[in-house]
């Protein structure tokens, strides 16, 4: 094997570990929810792990900024890997990343901020980008939103300002086809992919289930944003494999099966050394379950 391929394999393997880690955490949360251990609500990103890992691995996590949404566990874990304080937060422990006050949708750590109001973070993230531009810090802001959030007016006010003032921000759209129970085609007119272009924000639509491709495009766009101080929109096609939140899923099994064939983790697994993968999977499962037992005090 050539050394460059070896390197790629290493990076892909790291992506795999992170994506698999997110998946196990999310499955664990659904399980804890089903057993009544956690209350409130959880929105898991099963099937969308390549977006979180691909995009966030393209950032300088020391200085760049992430604004996330209600479906933000994957973004958080890809950003800082702090599973303990995420789980503690959702379990309502005082050691949670926001002392248990925030909960699943309201996470904040260093340069990571999430909120549960659809579209509301678009202007906030735009203001952060303005702040970093005025400071000359070179930081880029990434704001994640779903296809559903793209029906909110706040998003367009933000796109307008971000382009008008040449701000270093990437709008990262996770088009998982649904907003809660609503298929995107029943709530959007025109082309979602092209909307931002009308504001002068170039938009790039890609396969969001291919982590290497997501990472490559994100790196290129982040680099452009950083060097040109101008916004971009990365539009990623993906699919939510789990329920919207905790079990209220009315989609056809046939449709789900179709998308299971295209889900990002099995696609990546095929490209990797199978014995390494098996080892990683076992390790990750073990880490997460140890953390959960720790936090539950048994």
């Amino acid at each position: 094997m050539l050394s460059s391929e070896r390197l790629d394999q290493d990076i892909l393997h790291q992506f795999f570990r992170k994506m698999f880690h997110i998946r196990v955490v999310e499955e664990t949360l659904l399980d804890l929810f089903a057993h009544g251990v956690i209350g409130g609500t959880v929105h898991t990103c099963l099937g969308q792990e390549a977006v979180a890992v691909g995009v966030i691995s393209a950032l300088n996590v020391e200085t760049d900024i992430i604004c996330s949404n209600h479906r933000g566990h994957g973004h958080f874990l890809a950003y800082c890997g702090d599973t303990r304080s995420l789980l503690a937060e959702i379990l309502g422990h005082p050691t949670g990343v926001c002392g248990g006050i925030g909960g699943s949708q309201h996470l904040q750590k260093k340069n990571f901020y999430s909120n549960g109001i659809l579209g509301g973070m678009s202007p906030v993230a735009t203001g952060m980008a303005f702040a970093e531009k005025l400071k000359g810090s070179g930081a880029v802001v990434v704001q994640f939103m779903g296809d559903g959030a793209m029906a909110e007016g706040a998003v367009y006010e933000a796109l307008n300002i971000a382009a008008l003032w040449n701000l270093p921000i990437m709008f990262a759209v996770e088009h998982n086809q649904y907003a809660q129970s609503t298929h995107w085609s029943t709530q959007h007119s025109g082309s979602l992919e092209q909307r931002s272009e009308a504001f002068g924000v170039p938009s790039f639509a890609i396969d969001g289930n291919d982590v290497a491709g997501v990472n490559e495009t994100a790196q290129r766009l982040i680099n452009e944003i950083r060097t040109q101080s101008a916004p971009r929109l990365l539009f990623m096609h993906t699919y939510r494999l789990g329920p919207h939140s905790k079990g209220d899923d009315l989609r056809d099994q046939e449709e789900l099966d179709h998308h299971l064939q295209r889900e990002p983790i099995s696609r990546l697994r095929e490209k990797l050394d199978q014995s390494l993968v098996a080892e990683t999977e076992q390790l990750v499962r073990q880490q997460v379950s140890t953390l959960v037992s720790d936090l539950r005090g048994n």
Binding site: P123, V124, T126, G127, M128, A131, K135, A154
Partner: peptide, 15 residues
């Protein structure tokens, strides 16, 4: 709404 949000973001980042 948009520029109030922008100001919120700036306030979070030190302004």
């Amino acid at each position: 709404g948009g520029f109030t949000g922008v100001a919120v973001g700036m306030a979070l980042r030190g302004f």
